[in-house]
């Protein structure tokens, strides 16, 4: 199940996979490098500061990043980032299930 890695990866999705979950108005997105060799690149590309900067109208709170070094994974906790959460959000995706693809859609070279 390895990714069809392009010669020059351009997007986070080219080197990593991700899953989003919600609790209240907090979204968490875990992002995992397919290839351990890309983990450093992933860590450089996805920083809490960048995620805040990319989605200022969505992510109102702080962004925490937990590094799971031995599994080559990052867990992002995006506070106040679900338009009020499942109770208040009028987004069709009120759980923010698709937020994983917000991160996977970011370009690697604009970090």
């Amino acid at each position: 199940m390895s990714a069809l890695r392009p010669n020059t990866p351009r997007f986070v999705r080219d080197i990593a996979h991700a899953r989003a979950g919600d609790k209240g108005n907090i979204s968490n997105v875990s992002v995992w490098a397919y290839d351990p060799e890309d983990f450093d690149l992933l860590k450089r590309a996805l920083t809490p500061e960048r995620i805040k900067r990319e989605f200022p109208a969505l992510v109102h709170g702080r962004v925490d990043r937990y590094v799971i070094e031995h599994l080559h994974g990052l867990n992002f906790v995006l506070h106040d980032a679900l338009e009020g959460g499942v109770n208040r959000s009028l987004n069709l995706d009120s759980h923010g299930k698709s937020w994983s693809y917000l991160l996977l859609g970011l370009k690697l070279d604009e970090a």
């Binding site: 199940m1 991700a18 979950g21 875990s30 925490d64 799971i68 906790v77």
Partner: peptide
């Protein structure tokens, strides 16, 4: 379906904040 390290990893941190 499939059970792989990747499917297990994604579920490991599903709705988890501080691991």
């Amino acid at each position: 379906g499939a059970v792989t390290p990747a499917t297990v990893k994604e579920q490991l941190l599903y709705e988890v904040h501080d691991p």
